[in-house]
């Protein structure tokens, strides 16, 4: 049985007579990842913008079946820009991103350990490498209560070890009832975690 969290129905997007997306329909399912893949300029990031509510589609509907009216407020979005402050330390960035919960500090400690960044917690993120900054942005997923992660090209800038760590965190997240929408340029192997691939053609 399909346990749908969000359904996108006939979504279209055009800008200045340029069709960016046309009649896109799919389900975002609970405990499952969805990989939106396609070539450069196919509209993957625009589609993520529509799911997060930052972009209004020209046509189509988005249905929320989660039973949580505030689902979209709790989305964790990691875009092309990492959403971290260069003049804050790794720890401060995570503290300001984390939900206000009692176990906030322990979650941050855990995230730092998972991504092997504990020794860099007091370092300003402007002094980190591109890949390390990407890891900080991905760590934000681990310090919140979100049921839905939306990540634009999660594997870009990551080394093999970090990719494995990310895949493991996704696996654990999906096993706990979460859902992931991500983009990439190619299909993702179904052996990595429970994932559906959806090709976007312009």
């Amino acid at each position: 049985m399909i346990n749908s969290l969000i359904e996108l129905e006939n979504i279209s997007l055009s800008r200045n007579d340029n069709n960016i997306l046309k009649d896109i329909s799919f389900n975002i399912e609970t405990s499952k990842a969805l990989n939106l893949y396609g070539t450069n300029g196919s509209g993957k990031t625009s589609l993520l913008g529509i799911i997060t509510g930052m972009t209004e589609p020209t046509a189509g509907n988005i249905h929320n079946f989660s039973g949580d009216d505030r689902l979209f407020e709790k989305i964790i979005y990691v875009g092309h820009k990492y959403g971290i402050k260069a003049n804050l330390t790794v720890l401060e960035n995570l503290l300001y991103s984390a939900d206000d919960s009692k176990d906030k500090i322990s979650r941050i400690d855990k995230a730092l350990k998972v991504y092997n960044m504990n020794n860099l917690r007091e370092v300003l993120t402007k002094n980190l490498s591109h890949g390390q900054q990407k890891k900080v942005s991905l760590m934000k997923t681990l310090v919140s209560d979100s049921l839905l992660w939306i990540i634009d090209e999660p594997y870009s800038a990551l080394d093999n070890d970090s990719i494995t760590i990310f895949n493991n965190t996704v696996n654990s997240f999906l096993n706990h009832g979460g859902s992931l929408v991500m983009t990439s340029h190619a299909e993702i192997k179904k052996s990595l975690f429970s994932i559906a691939n959806y090709e976007i053609n312009k």
Binding site: T52, G53, M54, R70, F72, E73, I75, Y77, G79, H80, K81, Y82, G83, I84, K85, A86, S97
Partner: peptide, 17 residues
């Protein structure tokens, strides 16, 4: 401007309320 450039504005605007 800084929030726009570093992407924190996107996260900020996802919230509806």
């Amino acid at each position: 401007k800084e929030d726009y450039d570093d992407g924190t504005l996107e996260m900020f605007l996802i919230k509806k309320e």
